[in-house]
Design a binder for these strands. Structure first.
Lengths: 203, 203, 203, 203
DNA sequence: CACTAAACGAGACGGTACGTCAAGTCTTTCG
DNA sequence: CGAAAGACTTGACGTACCGTCTCGTTTAGTG
């Protein structure tokens, strides 16, 4: 979705555009964010934007990514899977609370409901790495006997992250450290190997 | 949000407007849905729309509500809380899959990320009843000793519904019956009273 | 070309648009005249212009016509055809010299070289009446024996007006009264009935 | 207006540019003719055009001149001034009818109404020679007693060419041989020395 | 039953932003 | 080092909707 054409492109302009988009989005809101406003703020022609990005959401996605360079792929592995996930989720949830990422991320998730291409790009560039790392960590814990091995690691990721996103997107309450810890604890109580005898059939 | 003014209002036009909005939204997508299009399709003047609704999302919310008259407040209580939630969530998730509700609901959730008033209206009119009923059912199970009583019922609702919404909104995979059952089973394994000895919160 | 749709139209806006077009054309020139400028100057939305006129030239044509309400169809007939044409041509040539008509008329003639529809509209609304009146006057003089009756009246009109327009459009010298009189005298010397013996064959 | 800078200039490119301009003007019309289109068609960078010409009209003027190398300065002088002018005007009017010159010439005359520099260049490079030659021929005829010597030769040129241009630019009818001959005959009837007794100026 | 007042369809209005296009300038790259 | 290629800022284009505002025309509901 970004820089499809690797040819001679003014990186200064590109940065100014992404910066203007991020700032304006925070100031006026995603709905009132427009290409003209971004161009004016960035001191750039509209064409220069249209030349390199197909839509305002693509610009914001670029901006969001560059604001999220931390805690990406280095999933902690201390041996204690529960503690590791607490650490990781708390870190990941910064994106949902920091004022320079939260509104943009929420807006993009909202827009992605209407834009399959954006949804795909977000998955590819924003989430797939994190989810893959989490799945790996879970598999590792399963091999170590810490987690029931009959459960799909993807399901466990959903159980862990789902409540956070649900609270954030539907209930509009940003996730706090306490809340995350309780959630992770409760989920792991259900997936821990020690409770392998838990009812696994359906009713 | 709707019919705040109880004065003489043409119910035929109102129905035509809501119907036109629902149909057009499915046909052209929420983004390209516009008041002019709705008015034209409904054979109605634009003023008639603006007189009774403040925005396209308000119209869609009215339409979505009237398409969701089923399975609202009658939460089952068979004594088996796990089975009851499976039943209820499967029913509730129809909204996330039926083609006459899913796109509108997703669009509204997306739009609500930018519109606090809409978010509030959706909570009030769409979700609060369901969540309250679920909370009640959980409290009942807690009193019966089926669920650990040290857990906030709201948290449990999040654990149950969160993964579903996460899968739907973020991963864009509609929830299936199997998936729901597994999710509910796994969550209840963690919240069941029998696993009360599970670690309930370390640092 | 103007007001094709007679429906409810704001005449105040229409007047403001035509006035703004005339004024701006004089101030910045026809080439730099644009719909946006006219709209801004007239305090009007662009749509209101596009609704009633297809192009800037159509607006100017309307404006030019309303500035030329004088000396239209009342061709003088004093019995002296030469004097009558002097009177009439001098009057008609005001359009080519008055600062509130000359630049617009020149611009429209220029634009008409690239726009057959405009050319047609100008002929129909601007010139055909005048030419028809002149032809009538010539026919009358022919019946009275003042002008050779073997000559096409249209040719005589060309001989009379052609040099004026040529001087104006090609040589860019505005026609003066003396010049017009000399031209008319010289042409009538060639078409007068008294010189009927003039060589009429070709070489 | 053209090649002011005599430095190393690629004559192949120059020719390609002029050719492209002429062709494109005929194909898409003067209004839609643009520098970008010319550059693309000529396989040339835009800068190469801007380096040597200030505007599209300057390119077309160059092109038009090179397409009019015939019948320029060699005004016939057979002794019969009427026949000579018939010959000359018919030749000159080829420019107004040939499909490789007529549209460009009309476009340039139209554009010159808005561009004094272009108007000047056209007079200097296109017309002044022809008019000077015609004036010379008329002076010669006056000295020979064929034409009234009290008339300004310039006026006679206007009388001869004016009707042609008027018919072409205003009435949009290309000049035909018959029409030219009749016009010339009638004009000369008025200016011939034999009709010197014609009224030469009353009030 | 006429009268009045509103809600209605229609759509013109002043605006704003869209995405496209070309202008003329500037920079990079190649022959 | 001139020229091709083309990215750049600028700004107008014509379109599409916005939300507001008349218009006449129904249509209730009241006097």
């Amino acid at each position: 979705m970004p820089s499809r054409r690797p040819e001679r492109r003014n990186e200064e302009s590109a940065k100014a555009i992404v910066r203007a988009a991020l700032d304006l989005c925070r100031e006026v809101g995603y709905d009132k964010l427009g290409i003209e406003g971004i161009a004016a703020r960035a001191g750039v022609g509209k064409n220069t934007i249209y030349r390199w990005w197909p839509s305002k959401s693509a610009i914001l996605l670029d901006g969001l990514l560059s604001a999220m360079t931390s805690a990406q792929s280095d999933f902690p592995d201390t041996g204690d899977v529960v503690a590791d996930f607490k650490t990781q989720i708390v870190a990941a949830c910064e994106t949902l609370t920091r004022p320079d990422t939260a509104p943009h991320y929420a807006a993009l998730i909202g827009a992605a409901q209407q834009d399959a291409e954006l949804a795909n790009a977000m998955w590819e560039r924003l989430l797939s790495h994190l989810v893959a790392a989490a799945v790996d960590r879970i598999r590792h814990a399963q091999r170590q006997g810490q987690i029931r091995s009959d459960l799909d690691p993807d399901l466990i990721v959903e159980l862990l992250y789902g409540p956070i996103y649900y609270g954030w997107l539907i209930r509009h309450s940003p996730p706090g450290r306490e809340h995350i810890h309780t959630t992770v604890d409760t989920v792991f109580a259900g997936v821990a190997a020690s409770s392998a005898e838990a009812r696994s059939g359906n009713g």
